[in-house]
Simulated assay, not measured.
Amino acid sequence: MPDALLALHVLAGTAGLVLGPGWLLARWRHRGGAGMAAGYQVAVAGVALSGAALAVAVPGLAWLCAVAVLTQGLAVAGALARRRGWRTWRTLQPHLLGGSYAALLTGALVAGTGSPVWWVVPAVVAQVPIAVAKRRLHALPA
């Protein structure tokens, strides 16, 4: 069972890492991207659920359940911000969705390398595309 769960976790994570930028590019090109958005949300949910299950199964890693919940929360809140017309959605959405993507990337890099530096680098580097997205969203007509 753990091998199948790990395979699901890797598959969902890979899908999220591919669909995230695809969704962003579709939105920037005014092509909607609803399918990619839904796929990204499903992928993040799959990563969060399988990651939490794996964390509980390995002694000493239960604290990663909080990371799974936070990652899922960021993705869902980011998707809802615009759809629900939150007053500050143009500022919040890039941080929320960018944060969920940075969490996926962090997990892949930490798992792949084991280096603790990857706990910080994706969050720092993500600030550039988040700032660009915020600038683009604030330039849209109200």
Rank of each mutant, 00 (worst) to 15 (best):
M1S: 12
M1D: 14
P2H: 11
A4D: 10
A7I: 01
A7K: 01
L8D: 08
V10S: 02
A12R: 09
G13R: 02
G13D: 04
G13P: 07
V18P: 05
V18D: 03
V18C: 12
G22T: 14
L24Y: 05
L25W: 15
A26P: 04
A26W: 12
A26L: 14
A26R: 04
R27V: 11
W28D: 11
R29C: 13
R29I: 10
G32E: 13
G33C: 12
G33S: 14
G35I: 05
M36L: 15
A38Q: 10
G39A: 10
G39I: 05
Y40E: 03
Y40S: 02
Q41H: 13
Q41C: 07
A45R: 07
A45G: 01
A45Y: 01
G46Y: 11
V47M: 08
A48G: 08
A48D: 07
L49N: 00
L49T: 05
L49D: 01
S50V: 08
A52G: 15
A52L: 05
A55C: 13
A57W: 07
A57C: 01
A57Q: 07
V58Y: 06
A62R: 14
W63K: 11
W63S: 09
W63L: 09
C65E: 07
A68C: 13
A68D: 12
V69H: 11
T71E: 13
T71S: 15
T71A: 15
Q72P: 00
Q72A: 11
Q72M: 10
G73T: 12
L74P: 02
A75P: 14
V76W: 11
V76Q: 07
A77K: 09
A77N: 09
A77R: 14
G78S: 09
G78T: 11
G78D: 12
A79Y: 12
A79T: 14
L80K: 09
L80E: 12
A81I: 08
R84M: 08
R84V: 02
G85D: 10
G85K: 06
W86K: 02
R87K: 14
T88N: 06
T88P: 05
R90P: 08
L92C: 06
Q93E: 15
Q93N: 01
P94C: 14
H95P: 00
L96T: 06
L97D: 05
G98P: 01
G98C: 05
G99H: 04
G99M: 06
G99A: 03
G99F: 05
S100F: 00
S100N: 04
Y101R: 02
Y101E: 14
Y101L: 15
A102P: 06
A103W: 01
A103L: 11
L104F: 03
L105N: 04
L105H: 10
A108F: 15
A108L: 12
A111Y: 00
G112P: 07
G112W: 03
G112F: 04
T113K: 04
G114T: 07
S115V: 00
S115E: 06
S115R: 10
V117P: 00
W118L: 06
W119S: 12
V120H: 02
V121S: 07
P122G: 08
P122R: 03
A123T: 02
A123F: 15
V124T: 08
A126Q: 05
A126R: 03
V128K: 03
P129F: 13
A131K: 01
A131Q: 04
K134H: 10
K134G: 09
R135L: 01
R135C: 00
R135Y: 00
L137F: 14
A142F: 02
A142R: 15
